[in-house]
Write a protein that binds this DNA or RNA. Structure first.
Lengths: 200, 200
DNA sequence: AGCTATATGTAAACGCCGTTAACTTACAAT
DNA sequence: ATTGTAAGTTAACGGCGTTTACATATAGCT
């Protein structure tokens, strides 16, 4: 956090705007994020954002990309920890996926709001590839299977399950009255049903 | 479609507004739906909507509920057809879920936009219960398991998988360049991995 | 049939939104 | 010191959701 003593130029406006999106989305939800609101929070004029982002959608695209990479980071940590302890790495990565969605629901929503972001953006796509990579690890690769954006049915099953769980918890009617730990326990139970499929 | 010959009163404004949401969401996406746009399409003043819906969110809640029931209808048809042909009913219902999302992506999105609807609305919740019911059929019920909003890990696994697949197809980076039939084939492949789990 | 209450429409205004155009300031290179 | 450019400001535009005050049509009552 930099101070800003009435200087005409802000200096780090692009990043500050991302932080503002972060804070407003966390407090009031991603739908409550407005460019004017972000600018006001930073203490800058409404039009200034357009020097750094083509439009609101471009800002949200960068924010979504940032969120994707945060999720990927969390998955990497979970993978390494499981590796150290000799635990199931796929299980750990799946749990990290759902845990992130439950901890930062507004971020998780922003990642997948197709109509609010430029989902063909190359940085965004690279982040999704990175994310997918952690879910693909541990599965046997065939020769025709080099493209990271191609999934085997098993890999897609794993991703679908954790993604579906996360979405149903965050936006759906499942376990709405239960707290985070109960939802994580439920996730554990569901994964206990699923993971044996991959061990055959 | 009723004609409206410059009468002061419209007569079926509540339903007409829902139809307008339907058409605009189908053409331009759910984010492009505005109350003023709906009113204009019907040929009615912007303020008239508030005689029938408390606010925009209430309108979208009813629309989401309608969409949920359409999905539930499709699942019921799929179930009955599978029953007639002696095919796997759970498989049929799962396929119907994903097929609906691919055929009407804007509707599928609207169903789960937590921040755009009143998701504690009783009609909305009843529709989600109905939906869940079709996915729960075929699973063994325990005595403590009467509440339709409670799910066994197996039932939740089934729902998560199809919901995750649908979301990844509609809003995610999975199979984006492939057409509807290829995605349905992929869905079939994923379900072929999953469904044996339930047959033990 | 006429009167009235109520339901259902309109018009005008409010503040907020994203975005643009024209202008200003500060910094960096010469 | 001059000057070009990057990064801010101000003012305006039309569109948005929503409210308030008003207008009109319908339904029930006598």
């Amino acid at each position: 956090m930099k101070k800003r003593g009435n200087r005409y130029h802000h200096g780090h406006l692009a990043e500050s705007l991302l932080d503002a999106v972060d804070e407003i989305a966390t407090q009031f939800g991603i739908e409550a994020v407005t460019l004017r609101g972000c600018a006001k929070r930073i203490g800058v004029s409404p039009a200034s954002a357009f020097r750094h982002y083509a439009d609101k959608r471009a800002l949200l695209t960068v924010f979504a990309t940032r969120a994707l990479n945060q999720l990927a980071d969390a998955m990497e940590v979970a993978k390494l920890q499981a590796q150290d302890k000799g635990e199931d790495m796929l299980q750990a990565v799946c749990m990290a996926y759902v845990r992130f969605a439950l901890t930062k629901p507004a971020f998780f929503r922003a990642m997948w709001r197709e109509e609010m972001i430029y989902s063909r953006d190359s940085d965004y796509l690279a982040a999704t590839d990175r994310l997918a990579g952690y879910l693909q690890e541990g599965f046997v690769k065939t020769i025709a299977d080099e493209d990271p954006s191609e999934f085997s049915p098993q890999e897609l099953l794993a991703w679908s399950t954790v993604h579906g769980l996360a979405c149903l918890f965050v936006d759906g009617p499942v376990a709405r009255e239960q707290d985070r730990d109960e939802k994580l326990q439920l996730t554990n139970d569901v994964l206990a049903q699923l993971l044996p499929v991959f061990k055959i």
